[in-house]
Design a protein around this nucleic acid. Structure first.
Lengths: 239, 239
DNA sequence: CGCGTCCTTGAACCGCGTCAAGCCAGGTGG
DNA sequence: CCACCTGGCTTGACGCGGTTCAAGGACGCG
């Protein structure tokens, strides 16, 4: 039975085929041989670890990546899910060490550009540097808005937000074409900044309201519009 | 009696006299007549409001500014205190509207650069654009680290953080040269993301431990090192 | 079949926000 | 000069939401 396939083919970052993140990819800027700088990372391996020195940045050519940050008592928090065409490691660029770590969720191909190469590309290409600068500006806005909203949300709202975010990033198709989420309760909790217990509670509550249903342990977002509506007061985009 | 004067003369942003934020100031880039683009804003007035369109960015030449963001039910949150030499309005640059508002805490002189002027300056000057890009990258790191730590702190820790942050931004000298804080309980609460009641509680607790003392309603950070130590596990910088 | 892992759910605890009452200082008007 | 009012600060009491702990169930795997 083949009722499972990738939902998203456009850029995850902005849902736009001509998104400038893609335009900034190595192929676009044409300065580097993408093939030459390509690296394969196996499922489960770190692409870079938290607090490791920054040698450059990465562009994801194919695969899914989980960006994590551990808090003061060692617990892991997922700060981002990234996929094809995304920039990776830019948070560290210009600093000494990576403030976050990146783990491959499946086999991943990345294109690695080291600091020197990048600097040359910036210097040679105004458009590229300007686009990256604008990218950072946008990231800053998004980051601050997200943390502002997160602080005001209840646990239930944060869990719903996490479900929608996952479905936009890694969504598969479940029954009737609704998004299917295969991450564990713990991983959802790591995104929603809570614990697995609360995620479980919220899910049973959503089940009773028929907004989600189950396929084994996997979660089907049955009433996508309803879910979106319940956190619409905060935002319209989950990335 | 003249036991009150400004503590800080270096750049608030990074405690560094040759900080690149200053290097990016209009005088440095030498493209614009700073005098010509200078605007005076009276105490209490908005420099720009939340959700207003972005026409350009500002450099504070002199004065103190409170950057605020209102949450879902209209309450105000202080996201930043800015002083001489700081960039202002950069969060909005590249977007449609300002995600935050800026209020003059005293009479303020700013230098305004509109979008077109700025674009020309970027295009003409690689160093400038590169520095601004790096500035954004650093802001992104700082913003994310701050929100990560904030989420893990208790109310007491957040209030202490707010006190230290204020003292680094707007610190005056009180008795024995210790920093003196003249903001109201409510304003401190707006920084610490809590309410005035809790701030009051924390302050009496700190008074009992002799970490702060009072001069009327104003707060003297008597044991600066002790206060810093109590939140050292989170960070070493408050800006 | 037994074991481990993940999920679920109830119960207890606790931090923090809210409300209300009281206090103090400064300002105003009689 | 005193009476009164107002706005900010302080402090106790209370309740809600959410985290934590513990016990039990479902499922897969050797």
């Amino acid at each position: 039975m083949n009722r499972r396939k990738r939902v998203t083919t456009q850029c995850f970052e902005c849902k736009n085929a001509s998104c400038f993140v893609k335009q900034c990819s190595p192929e676009y800027i044409g300065l580097i041989s993408a093939k030459k700088n390509q690296i394969k990372i196996n499922k489960g391996q770190y692409i870079f670890r938290e607090d490791s020195p920054v040698f450059g940045i990465y562009f994801i050519q194919q695969g899914r990546v989980k960006v994590v940050s551990s808090n003061i008592d060692g617990k892991e928090q997922i700060v981002r899910l990234a996929g094809d065409g995304h920039i990776l490691g830019h948070r560290g660029y210009g600093g000494e060490t990576h403030p976050v770590g990146a783990v491959a969720q499946n086999d991943v191909w990345v294109c690695f550009l080291d600091n020197a190469l990048l600097y040359d590309a910036f210097k040679a290409n105004f458009e590229f540097l300007y686009a990256i600068m604008m990218f950072y500006s946008k990231e800053l806005r998004k980051s601050e808005q997200r943390s502002k909203y997160f602080a005001q949300m209840t646990v239930e709202e944060r869990v719903i937000f996490a479900l929608l975010y996952i479905s936009e990033s890694f969504g598969l198709e479940g029954m009737e074409g609704s998004p299917l989420i295969t991450l564990s309760r713990q991983e959802i909790a790591d995104i929603a900044a809570t614990n697995a217990d609360q995620v479980s509670r919220v899910l049973t509550s959503l089940k009773n309201r028929e907004q989600v249903s189950m396929e084994g342990k996997n979660i089907i977002l049955a009433d996508l519009e309803g879910l979106k509506k319940s956190i619409a007061r905060y935002t319209t985009s989950y990335s």
